[in-house]
Design a binder for these strands. Structure first.
Lengths: 253, 253
DNA sequence: ACGATTGCTTGATCTGCATCAGGGCGCGGC
DNA sequence: GCCGCGCCCTGATGCAGATCAAGCAATCGT
């Protein structure tokens, strides 16, 4: 079993998961909930939207939600668990593009080429919502709010992709990584202070363009400086201010 | 008038510019031309589209097309010249996000936060088309092809942003940079073999997360190996195959 | 219960690129 | 003309982080 311990002690065999909605309500973390609910979306439209959403999963750790090269037909919202997206070059070397928490969308980068440019892999037990993209696009022509939300989601991803850019030090990168994760957990209603890194040190390293050994060393250094507490994959942020100071060039302003 | 050439010697006071269209035709490089023309768009729709397009420019080298923090109201297509997008962190250090050639769109990353997250600065004499975004979004609800094209443009930018990622060597980065530029020039009808780098070595270095000195050295090394010929800001690709070999991990596949 | 595998950590060494320093060229202003 | 400035090149040195190596703990398959 995974789990055990301490920041957080969660019931066994469980994953980070938000509530599930039902026939009338959206999942509380749904990216479209915020569009439809305040828009006073009528029952018909709601049903129309639900027509094109399928719940899928569970995927077990290591399983693919989609694979690089598959024809693009749908985007996905993570409903529970954590998903890693990555590319493999022809030598088989991995390139981690990102980690995706409940409430976040994946597959948006597949629209352009009409096939997925990356693999999406469950890091723990994962549930997703599948949105047929053609159906969603059609709905978007009828509901400007949905179109606007899609534009926003796409636009946001452009910015995210260029965050990891920049030639920052290993310490800056890790501080920023932890803070961004914390904020994303907080935005979904989880603790921003203590959380579990579902990904391996190797994945973190790859994502941040570092060696796994460096990630190990920096985490220890941050712990020695009492900025964080690390125990295996569980992290607790002890001194947010100092972390923010470290990361301020990356999170600019 | 365009211009051909050989690295070097272009008529003075001129810039890379594609044809301009008129009241009935789109600019030949227009990102939306490909949507509207084959869609057999009728004159009314064309006029509607033109209603929301304004030609702007010329901007002289160093002038801003938009500034970081300004409220987002429009996206722009570069019509002539080269535009650099960049962010400044609070210490005033620059971070170059990209270079944009005629036919390419800028400002897409501003939708999310409803303000521009970066500066767009002319590197030489620049002309642009300005598309009111609210008007464009409205049009998109009526013309699915326009909506689809917007989705595609946004999606493509997500992928571009993660290209510069990865921990590649200076040689790999520069080879990839030159090849991508060449392809983009070719896509707009310019020579893919010989072209002018409108940006300084410093800008290239910043974009590729290198020092300007390193860019200088690598260009010289590539020239010594007879892969390219460099003369000031004019470049000629002599051995595309070897460059592609160098860059194959970045351009993956 | 066993070895095999995988993930994490720590130490020692190596290296690619940044940094520092200096010099040349071309251009605009006076 | 000359000066100053921006841009580019080249060489010498230093360092952050990669790489190599080794050991430990937890998990897995049999």
């Amino acid at each position: 079993m995974k789990d055990t311990q301490h920041p957080g002690r969660r019931p066994p065999a469980n994953t980070i998961v938000a509530d599930d909605g039902d026939d009338l309500r959206f999942c509380s973390t749904c990216a479209f909930g915020s569009v439809c609910l305040p828009a006073g979306v009528d029952k018909t439209a709601l049903r129309e939207l639900h027509m094109l959403v399928e719940h899928a999963g569970p995927y077990r750790a290591g399983e693919h939600v989609f694979r690089s090269g598959e024809p693009f037909a749908a985007i996905f919202a993570v409903r529970g668990g954590v998903v890693k997206t990555r590319q493999l070059d022809d030598d088989g070397r991995e390139q981690v593009l990102g980690f995706h928490l409940p409430g976040e969308m994946i597959g948006l980068n597949a629209i352009h080429a009409e096939k997925y440019p990356c693999d999406a892999i469950a890091l723990d037990t994962v549930f997703v919502c599948r949105f047929s993209f053609p159906a969603l696009a059609t709905l978007a022509t009828k509901m400007p709010g949905v179109q606007q939300q899609l534009f926003r989601l796409l636009s946001a991803d452009i910015g995210k992709a260029s965050l990891l850019a920049g030639d920052y030090s290993a310490d800056e990168r890790l501080a920023a990584f932890l803070l961004l994760l914390a904020d994303r957990f907080a935005a979904r209603g989880f603790s921003a202070k203590a959380f579990r890194l579902e990904m391996s040190r190797g994945d973190i390293a790859n994502y941040l363009r570092l060696a796994a050994e460096t990630v190990s060393r920096v985490l220890r250094r941050l712990q020695d400086q009492k900025l964080i507490h690390v125990e295996g994959r569980d992290v607790e942020l002890l001194d947010r201010a100092s972390l923010q100071d470290l990361a301020r060039n990356i999170l600019h302003q």
